[in-house]
């Protein structure tokens, strides 16, 4: 019998991540339901934040950060995990895992796209708030703001990766995420600074990288902001450390999860 003689294909993490981004964009464009979380929800969040912070100095910055971050949080976390859940639902998880590329690169592509689509929300909130209030917000330290904004996105992506692993692990991950979503919104300070919550909630919030990053972001953008008593520098250190821990956990968890699903054989369950 003849044997096949063809150049062997070699997967690449970068190419697989780009392919995943491309697929996420195509799916996004093909499905109008995404308009709700990416464009309509941020505006609703904006109005809620506006009412919440009415009478606060730097109201506009609070509203933009609060609503924008809620949108980013939802898009990044919910979107990343949900997409993996969808892979289960439509039966694409098995063919995707049967490819040589580690699944984590597929997840990474989705998270990066979700971060970008979350940005659409924050821009929308910015436009709506500026038009509604007639005020262009002044940022205390614009350079630090941009750097910390990107950093905040990274912290969200780190948490999103762990959530996506949970979706590969079990079809019930969506239940946990749905229950926890609003608690996370509030507990990590997306909507308002967590220092105004009872003190006992703070240690829990600090287990999540975005809590640190969001506090740092507020330090950089709101003059006279009082967040965690240790200040901006330690916020950054805490954010970097917890993000590194989350990425490490995600790396380990993904390897274990991929092995686990092959052991229990639940890839086809949805």
């Amino acid at each position: 019998m003849a044997t096949v003689s063809v150049p062997r294909a070699h997967w690449s993490g970068r190419r697989s991540t780009l392919a995943s981004i491309r697929l996420a964009v195509l799916t996004f464009l093909a499905d109008p339901q995404w308009l709700i979380p990416s464009m309509i929800a941020p505006i609703v969040f904006g109005f809620v934040s506006f009412e919440l912070f009415l009478g606060t100095p730097d109201l506009v910055v609070y509203v933009i950060l609060g609503a924008g971050m809620m949108s980013m949080w939802g898009q990044t976390l919910y979107g990343s995990g949900w997409a993996t859940g969808q892979d289960r639902n439509i039966g694409t998880l098995e063919p995707t895992l049967s490819a040589p590329t580690p699944y984590v690169f597929v997840v990474l592509g989705r998270i990066l796209w979700n971060v970008v689509s979350g940005l659409i929300g924050i821009v929308l909130v910015f436009v709506v708030v500026v038009v509604a209030t007639g005020t262009v917000p002044s940022i205390d330290n614009p350079v630090a703001f941009v750097v910390l904004f990107v950093f905040t996105m990274l912290t969200l992506a780190a948490v999103g990766t762990v959530f996506a692993a949970a979706y590969v692990y079990t079809r019930y991950a969506g239940f946990v995420q749905n229950v926890g979503e609003f608690a996370f919104y509030i507990g990590t300070g997306c909507m308002f600074p967590i220092v105004i919550l009872p003190f006992w909630t703070n240690p829990i919030a600090l287990l999540f990288p975005p809590s640190w990053a969001l506090d740092a972001l507020r330090y950089a953008s709101i003059p006279g902001y009082v967040g965690f008593s240790w200040g901006l520098g330690w916020d950054i250190v805490g954010g970097v450390a917890t993000t590194a821990i989350y990425l490490l956990i995600a790396g380990i968890v993904f390897k274990r999860v991929e092995r686990h699903v092959l052991e229990v054989g639940n890839l086809q369950e949805y």
Binding site: H10, S16, T27, A30, G91, T101
Partner: peptide
């Protein structure tokens, strides 16, 4: 099941070609 139904067949195949590392 097992296909991305909201995109075209061509795009489905391009995606998997990338995951399998078919030379670009």
């Amino acid at each position: 099941r097992g296909l991305y139904n909201r995109i075209s067949a061509r795009e489905n195949l391009r995606y998997f070609a990338d995951l399998y590392g078919v030379p670009l």
